[in-house]
């Protein structure tokens, strides 16, 4: 009795875990084997019909491919820009504190609100961007109604909003680096580029991987900007899985099918991010160890 007693202290946490993670997950799995929709509510059993339909759903897989492109591209740009700005702030500039706060503003703003502002900028008839383009003698661009420009618009918004996150993490990393390797590089007469390539960048690798992984996880859920700016259009050109699942589940009210899509999305996200994490970990391991 005495031995088991401390285990009771785990109960509140365990109950919470079951209530908010285990039960919803198991329930969702069960829902995927039903036909719960607008006119058939509740849990019947239809076998793997939803899973088979998902396998044939080209719109879903198309959105998945789009997500890969959008998330990898945006995170790569965010990383490059964030690193550059962090180096800039690390090396010391005038009014450093002011700029540090300024660079964080996009990240501190509500994503959907930001997307609304960006939508008004990109709006083709009365938006600021086309207004500027016409002032300099360029033709207006169909930012939200043509596939290519719409994807560029979404990328710009994502990069603008989340580069500060990279900046923040990487700057913290840079500030925590030991001074000795830099002093040694300076004594050896290393150029600024060599110091960056051989000292700064390798030492920043673990922090970089952490920041990239966090952003990839977050970027895999791209929704606010897409839904607010283009609603997945034109056609389905900017539709991400999150937007598609939202459409199926909460607009069309196909609860069972939407759950199937969401579950597959979760499985794929876990698998992909685990593989990426492993690859990064291997790449960042110092050679010879």
């Amino acid at each position: 009795m005495k031995k088991g007693y401390p285990r009771f202290f785990l109960l509140p946490g365990l109950i919470l875990l079951i209530a908010i993670i285990i039960f919803p997950l198991l329930f969702t799995i069960r829902v995927t084997f039903s036909s719960w929709n607008v006119s058939q509510t509740g849990l019947n059993f239809i076998g793997g019909e939803n899973w088979a339909e998902m396998a044939r759903d080209t719109r879903y897989w198309g959105s998945m491919l789009r997500l890969f492109y959008l998330s990898f591209l945006t995170v790569a740009i965010q990383y490059a820009l964030g690193f550059a700005i962090a180096l800039f702030a690390w090396k010391g500039i005038a009014a450093r504190r002011f700029f540090r706060v300024l660079w964080l503003i996009p990240m501190m703003t509500t994503p959907s609100l930001m997307a609304i502002i960006w939508r008004s900028i990109f709006t083709e008839d009365i938006g600021a961007l086309n207004g500027i383009l016409s002032r300099v003698g360029l033709n207006p661009v169909n930012w939200l109604t043509e596939s290519g420009p719409a994807n560029i618009a979404i990328t710009i918004v994502e990069v603008w909003q989340w580069t500060p996150f990279m900046f923040l993490i990487l700057l913290a990393g840079l500030l925590s680096l030991p001074k000795e390797p830099f002093m040694a590089a300076a004594i050896d007469g290393a150029s600024a580029w060599k110091t960056f390539a051989r000292v700064t960048f390798p030492m920043m690798a673990p922090i970089s991987i952490g920041a990239i992984m966090i952003r990839l996880i977050d970027a895999s859920k791209i929704f606010d900007s897409v839904f607010t700016m283009t609603r997945g259009g034109p056609g389905n050109a900017t539709e991400t899985p999150a937007a598609y699942i939202f459409q199926r589940s909460l607009q069309d009210f196909q609860i069972a099918y939407g759950s199937t899509l969401a579950l597959m999305y979760l499985i794929l996200a876990i698998l992909t991010l685990t593989i990426i994490g492993k690859v990064f970990a291997r790449l960042s391991k110092p050679r010879g160890i």
Binding site: V38, S39, R59, T145, E146, S147, G233, P234, G235, N236, A237, Q247, Q251, D252, F253, Q254
Partner: peptide, 23 residues
């Protein structure tokens, strides 16, 4: 009919694809 929103959404999605030149 019941499910009319689903029918209209499916139709709109198809039309949107054609308008966007995707099909």
């Amino acid at each position: 009919v019941p499910g009319v929103s689903d029918y209209m959404t499916a139709m709109e999605n198809a039309v949107a694809k054609a308008l966007a030149g995707q099909a």
